[in-house]
């Protein structure tokens, strides 16, 4: 459980990046934190493993106040994957890179190699195990960064902008992967601008703007709310625009992805006794 209570955070230069955030994320939840550039999303998630400590208020991870634990201790249960893999890759091989955290946490070499092989397999990286991470493509480097965190099996996984720089196919795979680890019981929090990605994965959406939470609810509710989405400088999913423009024809609002839009349209057609298209 991640609990944020009255969190205010001021950077050393005096800028108040979080202005009173209350948020509770239960175990096994799947949450997307969205909002404009500079809304404070990264600042917020950096509190989850204690990299930043609250100026006011508090953050509890499974009941432990982040002020009372070191980053290394908190990281055992909160895996934070950063946006830019180039700001963390340093090893000679992908295998070493992925093993880094396990060694920091003091796992035995036997467990290290077992876990590394398994996570490399899960993320389609096995063939690159002995390659230098610097020689990989952007999308692959991003997966290495992901593997280097998931490898220690943290209970809560936080991904900062995981879809940036990924092509469509990679995004789809990433979505499947995220939903898979979520099904296995992990809390997954993604920070993203990618409205279409969220529309298809349908997590709980927490919308931030200017250091505050302005919306919180199911993806269907939040993303189809024009005012809210405007406030956070996002653009609604295209399907949502479509559903709105056809609402006078009886299409329900709150549709955000092609799949549910398709079934809604089909249902509408059937109700009107229009012969179904082949």
């Amino acid at each position: 459980m991640i609990e944020v209570e009255g969190l205010v955070f001021r950077y050393p230069n005096g800028f108040e990046a979080l202005r009173g955030v209350d948020l509770r994320i239960g175990d096994g939840e799947f949450v997307a934190i969205m909002g404009e550039n500079g809304a404070g999303k990264t600042t917020l998630v950096k509190h989850f493993n204690g990299l930043l400590k609250p100026t006011l208020g508090r953050v509890l991870i499974d009941g432990v106040d982040t002020r009372d634990a070191s980053v290394a201790e908190l990281a055992r249960s909160v895996g934070l994957v950063f946006q830019n893999p180039d700001r963390q890759l340093f090893s000679e091989t992908v295998r070493e890179e992925v093993a880094f955290a396990l060694r920091n946490f003091g796992f035995s070499e036997e467990i290290v190699s077992k876990r590394v092989e398994r996570i490399l397999g899960m993320l389609d990286l096995s063939e690159y195990a002995d390659t230098s991470p610097f020689l990989l493509s952007g999308g692959e480097r991003k997966r290495v960064a992901l593997a280097s965190v998931l490898v220690w099996d943290p209970k809560h996984v936080i991904l900062d902008e995981p879809t940036i720089g990924q092509d469509h196919l990679q995004k789809e795979r990433l979505r499947d992967f995220i939903m898979q680890i979520n099904d296995q019981g992990k809390t997954v929090v993604i920070v993203t601008h990618d409205v279409e990605f969220v529309a298809e994965a349908k997590p709980r959406v927490v919308l931030m703007s200017k250091g505050e939470i302005v919306g919180d609810g199911r993806a269907e509710e939040v993303l189809s709310d024009r005012d809210l989405v405007d406030r956070a400088s996002l653009i609604r999913p295209q399907i949502s625009e479509l559903a709105d423009s056809l609402s006078d024809k009886g299409l329900p609002r709150g549709l955000i992805d092609a799949y549910s839009a398709r079934s809604a349209i089909l249902r509408l057609l059937r109700e009107r006794h229009v012969p179904e298209l082949p």
């Binding site: 990299l51 980053v71 290394a72 950063f82 700001r87 963390q88 955290a101 920091n104």
Partner: peptide
């Protein structure tokens, strides 16, 4: 940013 990322990995 690099320090933050590596500390998050237990450094």
């Amino acid at each position: 940013e690099i320090i933050d990322a590596q500390r998050s990995r237990g450094l």
